[in-house]
Simulated scan of single mutants.
Amino acid sequence: MAVPSDPAQTSRGNDGRVAWSVAALVAATVLLGGLLPDRAAHVAASPADDPACAEWGDGCRVCRRLAEGAACSLPGIACTPGALQCLHRAGG
């Protein structure tokens, strides 16, 4: 095995390979992100965003989906809200 005469030259060669590898990895990630279908697109972020949820609440407020939009109750003065959850689904 031959020993390189200049270690700096060997280091520069490795730096180039590392830079190209990182660039290829970033390009592949961006390309896959653009081409693969978004699985989370159909999942609502909260019950308020889910059209199938007719009524939702957090333990302090209750909101109901009406034809005019959402209508929510006012929270009590000493209420500590919990996790937002669907209380009643549309059609059942």
Rank of each mutant, 00 (worst) to 15 (best):
M1Y: 10
M1F: 07
A2Q: 07
V3L: 01
P4D: 03
S5H: 06
D6Y: 14
P7R: 05
P7S: 03
A8W: 12
S11V: 15
S11C: 13
R12F: 14
R12Q: 06
R12N: 01
G13N: 10
N14V: 15
N14A: 15
G16P: 06
G16S: 13
R17E: 01
R17P: 01
V18F: 13
V18P: 00
V18E: 00
A19T: 11
A19R: 09
W20M: 09
W20Q: 07
W20T: 10
A24I: 15
A24Q: 04
L25D: 07
A27W: 10
A28G: 13
A28I: 15
T29R: 00
T29H: 03
V30C: 06
V30Q: 02
L31K: 04
L32H: 10
G33T: 15
G34N: 07
G34M: 08
L35R: 08
L35E: 04
L35N: 07
P37N: 03
P37E: 02
D38L: 13
A40K: 08
A41P: 02
V43S: 05
A44P: 01
A45K: 10
S46C: 03
S46W: 12
P47W: 11
A48W: 09
A48Q: 05
P51Q: 00
P51C: 07
A52W: 11
A52T: 13
A52E: 08
E55Q: 09
W56S: 06
W56V: 14
G59F: 07
V62I: 12
C63A: 09
C63V: 09
C63Y: 12
R64E: 03
R64Q: 06
R65M: 08
L66Q: 04
L66C: 00
E68T: 15
G69L: 01
A70L: 04
A70R: 00
A70G: 00
A71H: 08
A71T: 13
C72Y: 12
C72H: 06
S73K: 02
S73D: 04
L74G: 02
P75L: 06
G76C: 07
G76H: 03
G76P: 02
G76R: 03
C79M: 06
T80I: 05
P81H: 05
A83R: 03
Q85E: 09
Q85C: 06
C86Y: 10
H88W: 13
R89V: 11
R89W: 13
A90S: 12
A90Q: 08
G91L: 00
G91C: 00
G91A: 01
G91F: 08
G92P: 09
